[in-house]
């Protein structure tokens, strides 16, 4: 079971310190997602606002200047869609 993989109290680091830099990357927050952002490039003005607001910092710019989310980490919060000036990002239900 998943519980057996969690550390016991004797196994914790001092003060619960995290010793490995950037280990938050191991936590794939994409598993939380119930909706995914979908970009409509015809409306995008490449302003970068979606990238700035994404709380997971998982939005990057491609070679053509458009933006995309890394689905390993996109948690589907919809902030990019809410903040986009031209409303070119729609949130689509994830299929199970």
């Amino acid at each position: 079971m998943s519980e057996s993989r969690l550390p016991g109290w004797k196994d914790l680091t001092l003060g619960l310190a995290i010793l490995e830099p950037m280990s938050a990357r191991n936590n794939l927050t994409g598993s939380w997602r119930s909706e995914r952002p979908v970009w409509d490039h015809t409306k995008c003005i490449k302003c970068g606002v979606c990238q700035m607001y994404c709380p997971e910092a998982c939005i990057s710019q491609d070679a053509d200047g458009y933006f995309q989310a890394d689905m390993d980490y996109c948690k589907g919060c919809g902030i990019c869609s809410r903040e986009c000036w031209t409303q070119c990002i729609t949130m689509q239900q994830e299929e199970v």
């Binding site: 969690l6 550390p7 016991g8 109290w9 914790l12 619960l16």
Partner: peptide
């Protein structure tokens, strides 16, 4: 919640 209790015990 998966870890807080263990930190208190420690």
């Amino acid at each position: 919640p998966d870890i807080y209790l263990e930190t208190r015990k420690a």
